[in-house]
């Protein structure tokens, strides 16, 4: 078993005297796809805000490759819940955003991103504005913007929650296929049980606020996972639902 890439130790966060995160400990190993599953409003997104430096922790440790995550170090590429594409930038210029912030010139950044458009199903849409794209395509553009930053790890915050059910199912399949190929180290926040089972190697189940880890489940189904109706998948799904709906402290 390889050393963890990311390790959270007893992470705590309070807002105005209200405990949001009570005790979050989890690990993500290199090349692993881990999900955080929890009820809406339990503070899942707060974990990402602590990781990206938008918020400060009130206790606990964040270790990245075994060393504390100091300020200024940015090993994460973050994909927000809504696509957050800039309506005034063409798709290609939206996807280069992270590279431009890193200091690349616009043309250098474009050169780097352009070859990836076909793989992300965006071929021919480079010069379009976000308003001209469907929800699924916008989400793929947002993921492209995330992965081209070439960070050590992806943070995906409910990336498909705003999509309709059919598009979401298509995007989950697509993301799985992409992950098979690239084996990104990824941490996914979701409240969709099936999505978690479909995509993850391991799943952490959180309680209601104040959030703590209720259960950790390893999903040892083989990839690619096309058969979600298999007895193993159904059993894991049932167990997750049971844990979420009847939390035993």
């Amino acid at each position: 078993m390889s050393a963890p890439r990311l390790e959270l130790r007893q992470l705590r966060k309070r807002f105005d005297g209200l405990d949001v995160l009570a005790d979050i400990s989890l690990t993500v190993r290199p090349g692993e796809f881990v999900s955080i599953l929890g009820p809406s409003g339990c503070g899942k997104s707060t974990i990402f805000k602590l990781l990206t430096g938008a918020l400060q922790t009130d206790g606990g440790e964040v270790l990245f490759d075994g060393t504390p995550l100091e300020d200024g170090r940015r090993p994460f590429a973050f994909m927000p819940q809504r696509d957050a594409l800039m309506p005034w930038r063409r798709i290609i210029d939206n996807t280069t955003l992270g590279l431009e912030v890193q200091g690349l010139s616009r043309s250098q950044a474009r050169e780097k991103v352009a070859p990836l458009f076909a793989e992300f199903g965006l071929d021919g849409f480079e010069r379009h504005y976000p308003a001209q794209l469907s929800g699924g395509m916008r989400q793929r553009a947002a993921l492209l913007r995330t992965v081209v930053q070439q960070r050590d790890m992806l943070l995906l915050d409910e990336p498909f929650s705003a999509l309709d059910a059919l598009t979401r199912a298509g995007m989950q399949r697509w993301l799985q296929a992409m992950w098979e190929r690239h084996r990104w180290t990824a941490l996914l926040i979701t409240h969709d049980v099936r999505e978690a089972v479909f995509l993850s190697d391991r799943i952490y189940v959180l309680t209601e606020r104040p959030a703590r880890v209720l259960d950790e489940i390893t999903v040892s189904l083989p990839h690619p996972r096309t058969d979600l109706a298999s007895p193993e998948a159904s059993a894991i799904e049932a167990r997750l639902l049971q844990t979420l709906l009847n939390p035993q402290p």
Partner: peptide, 9 residues
């Protein structure tokens, strides 16, 4: 969302 995305970058 756009601002926190930029901050995360």
């Amino acid at each position: 969302d756009i601002q926190s995305l930029l901050a995360s970058m």
